[in-house]
Amino acid sequence: MRVHVVEDDAGVSDSLSLILANLGHDVISYPDAESLFRSPPPDGSDTVIVDLTLPGIPGAQVVRWLLKMAAVPRVVVITGQSQSAIDHQLRGLTPAGVVRKPLTVEALARALPAS
C-alpha cells in the first residue's frame, strides 16, 4: 500500500518512513502541506499520515481537504499536542485514526488498514 507522510520534523519523518517501509509499504514523504498539494493527489486506496503541527498551512486544513476528496484516502493524524488542542483543531472532522506521539509501531499498525 502507498503511504503519504506529511511531517516537518526530519527525525520523525525519517524514522516513520523506515518503519513503514519495514511494514511493507511504499512511502512518500512531504515536509509540509504545500509540497503535498503540489504533488499528484493520493487516491482512495492510499493512506495519508498528517502531523497536526506543520509550518505554513496547518495540518487540520490538510485533513479537511483530504476528507473532501472524491475518493477519500485513509487519513491518520499524528500529533504530540494535548487532547483539548486536538479536539479544537479537528472540530467536525473525523479522520480514520488519531495517534498521539510518541508513536509506537503497534499504535501505527492499528491505525493502518491490514494489508
Partner: peptide
Amino acid sequence: GAAIAHELNQPLTALMLYLQAIRRA
C-alpha cells in the same frame, strides 16, 4: 509546558521508531 512536551515528543517518537525498526528486522 505543553509546547515543550510536544517538542520532546519528536525525538522520542523518532527514537522509538528507529529502535522498533531494528527490532522487527
